[in-house]
Simulated scan of single mutants.
Amino acid sequence: MGEKIKKVKSWLSSVFGDQPVPEFEVNTRTVDILYQLAQSSEARCSDTALLIEDLKQKAAEYQAEGVHFQDVLLQGVGLSCASLSKASTDYLSALVDNAMVLGVRDTSLCSFLPAINNHTNVLLEAEKSNRRLERELMTLRKRLSTTLVLRSNLQEDINKTVKAQAVESAKAEERLLNMDFVTTKAKELSNRRERAEAQFASRNMDESLTHQAIVQLSEEVTALKQEIMPLNKKLEPYMDLSPSPSLAQVKIEEARRELAAIDSQLEMEMDFK
């Protein structure tokens, strides 16, 4: 426990430097957490230091290699950086930039070709993926267009249905109002009929004077009139004859008897009613 606390205090002092270390509660849990952080920090610092040393070593190697190439160019060809033209310097800068973009170790053809092939394959795969995505996008656009048309048609059908439902609701409400009115009127007429029947019953009214009996009697009278019409037609030829007292008297008596019989029958039926 004591070694951990010493290590934690040493690590905190190195982290905060000249600033004072904040106060914290010293217990087993906080010391363990800070100790783990200290170990992780030291491990990362060690890795970083090794990486820095490696980069320094590579920089030194690149620098030595650059000096070597400069010596070779100067001694073998008689070229130096100062003697190169601006175009040559630009070409060299472009070559270096391409090498850095491609991530190659040097600017040799053996390094450029695999890197270019690799990037070409990546470009082809990207173009292939792009074409596939364009096809999928076109399919989605077609589906979206179809969906929008269906949505528009569905919205139009919904609007029509809402309007039709509003009209049907208004008609149904009107029918209910009419039904209520008819029901109320029917109840009123039924009450009036019951009161009238009670009033007629209290007055001991003859059934033969009811509307139905009078209508039936009128129909029978009409039928009897239809039966009398042929007899009147039989009398019409005799109306134009010159009067013969004996014959006319006989015909008149016969007609009177027939009329009397019909009147008697009519009176009997009316009395029966």
Score class of each variant (00 low, 15 high):
G2W: 03
K4Y: 00
K4M: 03
I5F: 10
I5N: 04
K6R: 13
K6H: 10
K7Q: 15
V8K: 00
K9C: 02
K9H: 09
S10R: 10
S10V: 02
W11Q: 05
S13A: 13
F16C: 01
F16V: 01
D18Q: 07
Q19N: 12
Q19F: 14
V21G: 09
E23P: 01
F24I: 01
E25Y: 14
T28E: 08
T28C: 07
T30M: 11
L34W: 00
Y35W: 07
S41A: 15
S41D: 15
E42C: 06
R44L: 14
C45N: 09
S46N: 13
D47R: 10
L50R: 05
D54G: 13
K56D: 10
K58Y: 03
A59W: 06
A59I: 05
A60F: 12
A60P: 02
E61K: 13
Q63A: 04
A64V: 02
H68F: 07
V72H: 12
G76Q: 15
G78I: 06
S80F: 06
L84W: 01
S85V: 01
A87F: 02
T89S: 11
T89W: 05
T89L: 10
T89R: 14
A94F: 01
V96D: 15
D97Y: 02
A99V: 02
M100L: 10
V104E: 05
C110G: 15
P114M: 07
A115D: 02
N117Y: 02
N121W: 02
N121Q: 08
E127T: 07
N130Y: 01
R131G: 06
R132A: 13
T139W: 03
K142F: 05
R143Q: 11
L144V: 08
L150R: 12
N153C: 03
E156V: 09
D157G: 10
K160Q: 14
V162H: 13
A164Q: 15
A164Y: 09
A166K: 00
K171V: 07
E173H: 07
E174N: 15
R175G: 01
M179G: 13
D180K: 07
T184R: 15
K187R: 09
E194Y: 03
R195N: 10
E197G: 05
F200W: 08
E207W: 00
L209F: 07
H211R: 11
L217W: 05
V221S: 10
T222D: 13
Q226Y: 03
P230N: 06
P230G: 08
N232W: 01
K234Q: 15
K234D: 11
L235F: 09
S242P: 10
S242C: 08
P243H: 12
S244R: 02
P245L: 08
V250Y: 12
K251V: 12
E254R: 09
R257C: 09
D263L: 05
D263K: 08
L266M: 12
L266C: 04
E267D: 06
E267S: 07
